[in-house]
Protein backbone atom coordinates (compact mmCIF):
# COMPACT_ATOMS: atom_id res chain seq x y z
CA UNK A 1 0.00 0.00 0.00
CA UNK A 2 1.53 3.32 -1.00
CA UNK A 3 1.79 6.16 1.48
CA UNK A 4 -0.87 8.21 -0.32
CA UNK A 5 -3.62 5.60 -0.20
CA UNK A 6 -5.81 6.17 2.83
CA UNK A 7 -5.84 3.29 5.28
CA UNK A 8 -8.46 0.67 4.53
CA UNK A 9 -8.76 -2.11 7.10
CA UNK A 10 -8.34 -5.59 5.67
CA UNK A 11 -10.81 -8.05 7.13
CA UNK A 12 -10.90 -11.81 6.75
CA UNK A 13 -14.48 -12.98 7.21
CA UNK A 14 -15.07 -16.64 7.99
CA UNK A 15 -18.71 -17.23 7.14
CA UNK A 16 -20.58 -20.42 7.70
CA UNK A 17 -22.12 -21.77 4.57
CA UNK A 18 -25.64 -22.33 5.87
CA UNK A 19 -26.43 -19.06 7.62
CA UNK A 20 -23.94 -16.23 7.39
CA UNK A 21 -22.73 -16.86 3.85
CA UNK A 22 -26.34 -17.30 2.81
CA UNK A 23 -27.13 -14.08 4.70
CA UNK A 24 -24.42 -12.27 2.79
CA UNK A 25 -25.90 -13.69 -0.42
CA UNK A 26 -29.20 -12.18 0.62
CA UNK A 27 -27.52 -8.81 1.18
CA UNK A 28 -26.34 -9.17 -2.41
CA UNK A 29 -29.73 -10.14 -3.78
CA UNK A 30 -31.20 -7.17 -1.90
CA UNK A 31 -28.40 -4.94 -3.28
CA UNK A 32 -27.58 -3.67 0.22
CA UNK A 33 -24.31 -1.76 -0.08
CA UNK A 34 -21.52 -2.16 2.44
CA UNK A 35 -17.77 -1.59 2.46
CA UNK A 36 -15.60 -4.01 0.49
CA UNK A 37 -13.04 -4.42 3.25
CA UNK A 38 -14.18 -7.87 4.32
CA UNK A 39 -13.22 -10.74 2.05
CA UNK A 40 -15.31 -13.81 2.74
CA UNK A 41 -13.98 -17.31 3.21
CA UNK A 42 -16.93 -19.67 3.33
CA UNK A 43 -16.60 -22.60 5.70
CA UNK A 44 -19.03 -25.40 6.42
CA UNK A 45 -19.62 -24.33 10.00
CA UNK A 46 -18.39 -21.71 12.45
CA UNK A 47 -17.56 -24.67 14.67
CA UNK A 48 -14.95 -25.65 12.11
CA UNK A 49 -13.09 -22.37 12.49
CA UNK A 50 -9.99 -23.28 14.41
CA UNK A 51 -8.47 -20.63 16.66
CA UNK A 52 -5.41 -21.21 14.51
CA UNK A 53 -7.20 -19.70 11.52
CA UNK A 54 -7.89 -16.53 13.47
CA UNK A 55 -4.33 -16.21 14.74
CA UNK A 56 -3.03 -17.03 11.30
CA UNK A 57 -5.11 -14.32 9.66
CA UNK A 58 -3.64 -11.76 12.07
CA UNK A 59 -0.21 -13.21 11.49
CA UNK A 60 -0.67 -12.77 7.76
CA UNK A 61 -1.62 -9.15 8.25
CA UNK A 62 -5.38 -8.98 8.73
CA UNK A 63 -6.47 -5.80 10.48
CA UNK A 64 -9.63 -7.52 11.63
CA UNK A 65 -11.04 -11.02 11.70
CA UNK A 66 -14.75 -11.78 11.61
CA UNK A 67 -16.28 -15.16 12.35
CA UNK A 68 -19.97 -15.39 11.66
CA UNK A 69 -22.27 -18.36 12.14
CA UNK A 70 -25.86 -19.36 12.63
CA UNK A 71 -27.79 -18.12 15.62
CA UNK A 72 -27.55 -20.34 18.66
CA UNK A 73 -30.02 -23.16 18.21
CA UNK A 74 -30.05 -22.84 14.42
CA UNK A 75 -26.77 -24.51 13.58
CA UNK A 76 -27.10 -26.81 10.60
CA UNK A 77 -24.84 -29.20 12.46
CA UNK A 78 -26.79 -28.68 15.69
CA UNK A 79 -23.86 -27.77 17.94
CA UNK A 80 -21.20 -26.19 15.79
CA UNK A 81 -21.83 -22.62 16.85
CA UNK A 82 -21.73 -23.64 20.52
CA UNK A 83 -18.25 -25.00 19.92
CA UNK A 84 -17.25 -21.88 18.01
CA UNK A 85 -18.55 -19.62 20.75
CA UNK A 86 -16.56 -21.34 23.47
CA UNK A 87 -13.29 -21.67 21.55
CA UNK A 88 -13.32 -18.22 20.08
CA UNK A 89 -14.27 -16.64 23.38
CA UNK A 90 -10.93 -17.90 24.65
CA UNK A 91 -9.19 -16.46 21.59
CA UNK A 92 -10.85 -13.12 22.14
CA UNK A 93 -9.92 -13.06 25.81
CA UNK A 94 -6.32 -13.99 25.05
CA UNK A 95 -5.96 -11.34 22.37
CA UNK A 96 -7.28 -8.68 24.69
CA UNK A 97 -5.11 -9.90 27.55
CA UNK A 98 -1.95 -9.58 25.52
CA UNK A 99 -2.81 -6.08 24.43
CA UNK A 100 -4.37 -6.60 21.02
CA UNK A 101 -7.25 -4.17 20.57
CA UNK A 102 -10.44 -6.13 21.33
CA UNK A 103 -12.19 -4.57 18.35
CA UNK A 104 -9.95 -6.44 15.96
CA UNK A 105 -11.70 -9.74 16.51
CA UNK A 106 -15.41 -10.02 16.06
CA UNK A 107 -18.07 -12.68 16.06
CA UNK A 108 -21.63 -12.43 14.89
CA UNK A 109 -24.63 -14.63 14.38
CA UNK A 110 -26.22 -13.84 11.03
CA UNK A 111 -29.00 -16.01 9.69
CA UNK A 112 -29.76 -16.67 6.03
CA UNK A 113 -32.60 -14.19 6.37
CA UNK A 114 -30.48 -11.37 7.77
CA UNK A 115 -28.91 -9.75 4.73
CA UNK A 116 -29.28 -6.32 6.26
CA UNK A 117 -27.72 -7.48 9.48
CA UNK A 118 -24.73 -8.91 7.66
CA UNK A 119 -24.17 -5.59 5.89
CA UNK A 120 -24.45 -3.77 9.19
CA UNK A 121 -22.02 -6.13 10.91
CA UNK A 122 -19.42 -5.39 8.22
CA UNK A 123 -20.11 -1.64 8.28
CA UNK A 124 -19.76 -1.49 12.06
CA UNK A 125 -16.63 -3.58 12.01
CA UNK A 126 -14.95 -1.39 9.41
CA UNK A 127 -15.88 1.75 11.34
CA UNK A 128 -14.52 0.28 14.57
CA UNK A 129 -11.29 -0.77 12.87
CA UNK A 130 -10.54 2.54 11.15
CA UNK A 131 -9.38 4.43 14.23
CA UNK A 132 -7.12 1.55 15.23
CA UNK A 133 -4.96 1.82 12.11
CA UNK A 134 -3.01 -1.06 10.61
CA UNK A 135 -2.55 -4.13 12.77
CA UNK A 136 1.14 -4.76 13.19
CA UNK A 137 1.32 -6.44 16.56
CA UNK A 138 0.74 -9.95 15.32
CA UNK A 139 1.70 -9.38 11.71
CA UNK A 140 4.74 -11.21 10.46
CA UNK A 141 7.41 -9.08 8.84
CA UNK A 142 7.51 -10.96 5.60
CA UNK A 143 6.55 -10.16 2.01
Amino acid sequence: MSAQTPYEPKIVAFLCKWCSSAGSDLAGVSRIQYPANATPITVACSGGVSPQFVLSAFHKGADGVLVSGCHIGDCHYMEGNFHARRKLYLVKELLEFTGVEPDRFRMSWVSAAEGAKFAQVVRDFVEDLRPLGPQDKLKAERP
Binding site: I72, E79, H83, K87
Partner: peptide
Protein backbone atom coordinates in the same frame (compact mmCIF):
# COMPACT_ATOMS: atom_id res chain seq x y z
CA UNK B 1 -12.14 -31.53 27.34
CA UNK B 2 -12.88 -27.83 27.74
CA UNK B 3 -12.85 -27.14 24.01
CA UNK B 4 -14.65 -30.34 23.08
CA UNK B 5 -17.69 -29.44 25.12
CA UNK B 6 -20.01 -26.50 25.71
CA UNK B 7 -22.90 -25.36 27.81
CA UNK B 8 -26.06 -23.76 26.53
CA UNK B 9 -25.37 -20.71 28.66
CA UNK B 10 -21.76 -20.11 27.67
CA UNK B 11 -21.12 -16.35 27.32
CA UNK B 12 -22.77 -14.88 24.27
CA UNK B 13 -22.47 -11.18 25.11
CA UNK B 14 -19.43 -10.65 22.92
CA UNK B 15 -21.23 -11.77 19.78
CA UNK B 16 -23.11 -9.33 17.59
Amino acid sequence: ALVASFRDDDPNHFIR
